[in-house]
Amino acid sequence: MTSPVIDTPAAGAGAAARAADLWKVYGSGEAQVIALRGVSVELERGRFTAIMGPSGSGKSTLMHCMAGLDSATRGQLAIGDTALNGLGDAGLTRLRREKVGFIFQQFNLLPTLTAEENILLPLAIAGRKPDPQWFKTVIETVGLGDRLHHRPNQLSGGQQQRVACARALVSQPEVIFADEPTGNLDSRSGAEILSFLRRSVTEHGQTIVMVTHDANAASYADRVIFLADGQIVDELREPTADAVLDRIKRLDVVSSPTGGPDGPPGQRTAEDSPAATATGASE
């Protein structure tokens, strides 16, 4: 197996988010689990990137680290021109407020707020006024016009996720991180959500990073990055669902226990590191 590191950043300025030699180790001693082993990646501005990999490959951990939700054990992280390393809680809070949007598998809407209030929550917290034109555009994009004054419990799952998408889009963040956004939805609602994400990239130049294990979902992206055992093992540009599936099949072969990449000296290897527990939080 050749070096899995691809797209070594030429110039960081063009990237919406990047990681360099990112390590994430959970626990210590016997219980030590390595979730990420020196991952370097750049996520281009204005592109839709999907991160794929089998359960326990570290894809959710990578996203959480890059979004500033989780801290790295070692390595450099940045969103836009802001380095994440060394930022305290206040700094990370400001970063999330100004530069990052999130979409979650479980929607995560506040039940006490209406759809509109949920959408505007990040702006309200930041004390910013929404750009009415952009707000209108977002509402039209996600198609929630008549549901704005409903509470989350009066909306279907698909509608709730559309509210969550609108919430991420409305503050026009540097980058939106989506964690299995279609994982809790039926295929039709899922397709709708993916179309919105695609359109917001194509039409409005939004940067989106999505973690998924659904090949069909990944096919909406401009670029798919494949993770296995905490390392980037492959990537695919302008993917189709079939091409993605094909790569996954190959991945299963290369990431089998005998073909696993060597870790740094002294670290345990993949076969005795149940990575599934390491990233279990994302499952």
Binding site: R96, N108, A126
Partner: peptide
Amino acid sequence: TRELGLVRAVGLSRSG
């Protein structure tokens, strides 16, 4: 807990 995590994720500070 989940709601608290969310408001933190979308930018509410600890003091908030």
